[in-house]
């Protein structure tokens, strides 16, 4: 569905991605008292990146809990709680910290339903911030969503707009499966129109066509959605660019992407994760499987060049994928 069609007829409000996520959390906390937010400093402090804000004051400690700095422990507790009747939403302050909790993610959260022959629900949401651009260096800037998208039994979403940020957060919480919401921290201040309907959700597994075009398809995620839209506007008149926010990484909306590729014949995949063996490759593999004969040019990848995120600004800017990279990729194939 196109982004505009999605919003047509909806009452909306302009807000930032941060506010949109918080509104999504607030609505779900209100709707279902079994929704529990937990994480490091998410309570009284309001979150290091201020996403949970005043939810602690609004809902109290029973629903918004500060945890020890112990990712394995509280992610594991979220898994145990999800199997026994509550709906935890655990925050990983920086996705780089996921390594600490990986055991509970890969061997418990992802596998319990399957190993037990379907005899448990696992309604757990993990929110994790990703992305470079603020000089936070290698251990606080990673983009790791490929790990989770790759690992069977986990669902992964990564919003690029304020509307999707709210809609996917809510969809994740309502899902009976483990869903990771990857929030790029550089777009928390990005504004957009967000539906105010309390039951507005962005279905997991659906991409959003953010801008229609005829000549080239840019499949983007997170921060690169907005930057690609800017590039598309700048190229208008010369090149007609269609921009798709993948939104959901697993399951991936192959159909929307392939439909666009059939129309344009050219594609750029822009995602901040490291390029090799990754999210870009998966999207491209599916594109060639489904629409090989529609391809007019090699599909381009825009991502982090297989390095970690360095600290110093010129170094970080060197490796951080951006609109310029998207524009170069487009110009290479049109």
């Amino acid at each position: 569905m196109t982004a505009q069609a999605e919003l047509d007829g909806q009452e909306t409000e302009t807000m930032t991605v941060r506010e949109a996520i918080r509104q999504g959390l607030r609505e779900e906390l209100e709707r279902d008292e079994d929704v529990l937010i937990m994480g490091e400093d998410v309570g009284a402090f309001g979150g290091v990146l201020e996403v949970t804000g005043n939810l602690y004051e609004e809902f109290g400690e029973e629903q918004v809990r500060d945890t020890p700095i112990a990712e394995a422990g509280y992610v594991g507790a979220a898994v145990g709680a999800a199997a026994t009747g509550t709906r935890p939403v655990a925050e990983l302050m920086f996705s780089d910290f996921m390594g600490v909790s990986m055991e509970q993610i890969m061997n418990q959260m992802a596998k319990m339903r399957y190993m037990f022959g379907g005899k448990t629900e696992m309604p757990v949401t993990i929110r994790a911030t990703e992305g470079g651009g603020m000089g936070a260096a290698s251990q606080h800037s990673g983009t790791v969503h490929t790990w989770i998208s790759h690992f069977p039994g986990l669902k992964a979403v990564a919003p690029g707009t304020a509307a999707a940020a709210k809609g996917l957060t809510k969809a994740a919480i309502r899902s009976d499966d483990p869903v990771f919401v990857f929030e790029n921290k550089m777009i928390y201040e990005q504004k957009g129109e967000v539906p105010t309907d309390e039951d507005y959700i962005t279905p997991i597994g659906e991409a959003s066509v953010e801008r229609e075009g005829e000549d080239v398809t840019v499949v983007a995620t997170q921060r690169l959605v907005g930057e690609s839209l800017t590039v598309a506007d700048g190229l208008s008149g010369d090149v007609s660019v269609e921009v798709i926010d993948a939104q959901s990484l697993y399951p991936l909306d192959t159909e929307t992407i392939v439909e666009s590729l059939r129309k344009t014949g050219r594609m750029v995949v822009a995602d901040e994760s490291p390029v090799s063996y990754g999210t870009h490759a998966e999207i491209i593999a599916r594109a060639q499987e489904e629409a090989f004969f529609s391809l007019d040019a090699p599909i381009q990848r825009v991502g982090t060049p297989d390095t970690h995120m360095p600290f110093s600004t010129p170094l970080e800017q060197e490796v951080l994928p951006d609109g310029e990279g998207v524009q170069n990729a487009i110009e290479k194939i049109v």
């Binding site: 992610v75 145990g80 709680a81 026994t84 509550t86 935890p88 055991e103 509970q104």
Partner: peptide
């Protein structure tokens, strides 16, 4: 809540179950 092939993985699950119990 399951036998478990990972040594030490059960206690976080029990803590989580206890959290559900306490919450409800």
């Amino acid at each position: 809540l399951g036998a478990n092939g990972i040594v030490g993985a059960g206690p976080p699950l029990a803590t989580g179950a206890a959290l559900s119990i306490s919450h409800q």
